[in-house]
Design a protein around this nucleic acid. Sequence first.
RNA 1: GGUCCGUUCGUCUAGGGGUUAGGACUCCAGAUUUUCAUUCUGGCAACAGGGGUUCGAUUCCCCUACGGACUACCA
Length: 513
Amino acid sequence: MEREVRVRFAPSPTGPLHIGGVRTALYNFLLAKKTGGKMILRIEDTDQNRFVPGAEDYIRESLEWCGIELDESPWNGGPYAPYRQSERKPMYMQYAMQLIESGHAYYAFDTAEELDEMRERLKAAKVATPQYNSITRMTMKNSLTLPEDEVKRRLESGDPYVIRLKVPRKEEVRLKDLIRGWVMVHSSAIDDKVLMKSDGMPTYHLANIVDDHLMQITHVIRGEEWLPSAPLHVLLYRYLGWEDTMPEFAHLPLLLKPDGNGKLSKRDGDKLGFPVFPLRWQDPFSGEISSGYREAGYIPEAFINFLAFLGWNPGTQQEIFSMEELANEFTIERIGKSGTRFDIQKARWFNEQYLRAKPDAELAGYLLKALEEHNITCSPEKAEKIAGLMKERVSFPQEFWREAAYFFVAPTEYSEKVASKKWNSQSVAVFTDFRNELSTLSDFNADTVKDLLVSILERHGMKIGMVMQALRLAVTGAEAGPDLMQIIEVIGREETQNRIDAAISALSQYVTA
RNA sequence: GGUCCGUUCGUCUAGGGGUUAGGACUCCAGAUUUUCAUUCUGGCAACAGGGGUUCGAUUCCCCUACGGACUACCA
């Protein structure tokens, strides 16, 4: 009997959700969606010292923006609630006790100073990896070395203690990773990890295994940084007697810096000028602001498409995928093994593709919003037309306003380059006729305006190429843009005439002969 | 340092014992356009190195180099 697929994304609310975390969440979601399974979100807040206000809301809002839907979460509940580890605190101790009783864990009373001392001592003795393990634990203060009655006394008197896993001295721990195949680690490389902290909270390792088991998780898809501790997790499943329902593991390759070495960090975004977080974030302590993809103008579907391809591909030539399509095509087998260098250029390209695929009416909304902020009124029809003219020349929605302001505001500055090269007495003569005869047009649209211009040019013995750039300059002040006749149609007859008049007087110094 | 993971164009990648090693982004050139952009066409550009195995390795194995992660009472 195949179990229903149940995957989880388990972030810590210690700050804004990193883009790598979003990808991890996405892959989990995709697997759930493909298999008709369930997607669970669990908040791993076992470290009270690292709690950051607002981080949990940020996670929630980020996933919503991305279109990653949760079947079970702290916010919409589920059959295995609660979904916050801090609220599950009472559940963990019994499993730690179970491990102590079966001889797989023990109490340890060492202070931080004593631990430091031990590590220093080992370092001085040139031990490669100073760690609390099968050998060193015999020199420390724990229930393996202390007399039974002293352990009892310490426990009863409330001495601070932790519970550590008793990792065997010599044992091969094997683990099958869906992406990497069999991974083998010798138990001597694993230290006696703390399972229960002295504050009564479990560590990640214990809480994670207990919750994944209790929540019937079938696949653990997480970042590669967890691979080294995965064998430890296998041990935990084994000692708890849960090995037969242990989830499958898939460790995702990391997202790397665009340049240089190392994994992608917050600093890289600042340095290279792109966001590393889905949403804008203001640090509640320092007030520092980090930019987000949403605010930068990325369309969530494009962002998701881009993210999906960072380490995964469908094996076909198709690149544009909706969430539905991604879910249909997704398989863990097609996730790559090697780290992925982050390339913002590709994200931008995806955004352009999505922007161009959107209907003009929808795009008009972006423009309308910007216009509102600038106190400019505009009909939806006009905004739609402008959006249609502009959409193939912008990468982000906010550029609709930035690049198309001349549709609403007459130019106050003119491109020096075009003015000096194209503005002359001949073109001024043509424009004078043109602005006057515009009034004679009974039907004012791009076609009739163009016909008029062509006939005037014929009269002057000139070709259209000789004046178009100058006319564009007069009307928009810019060197480039969409079809000029369309622009004129949009801004209207009178405004066009006014702008030509203004340009003729403003650019008179360029007229030489 | 130790353990583990990885290595195909600048980047994301397909492929896989015998291929002109394919695509996408970027970049360059040409065509189209009233300009710019779009679009179209074309171009530059890769199997980290050394040993094996094999008739034949980019593909399989080993070593080296390089890169990465981990090495906390953080996750």
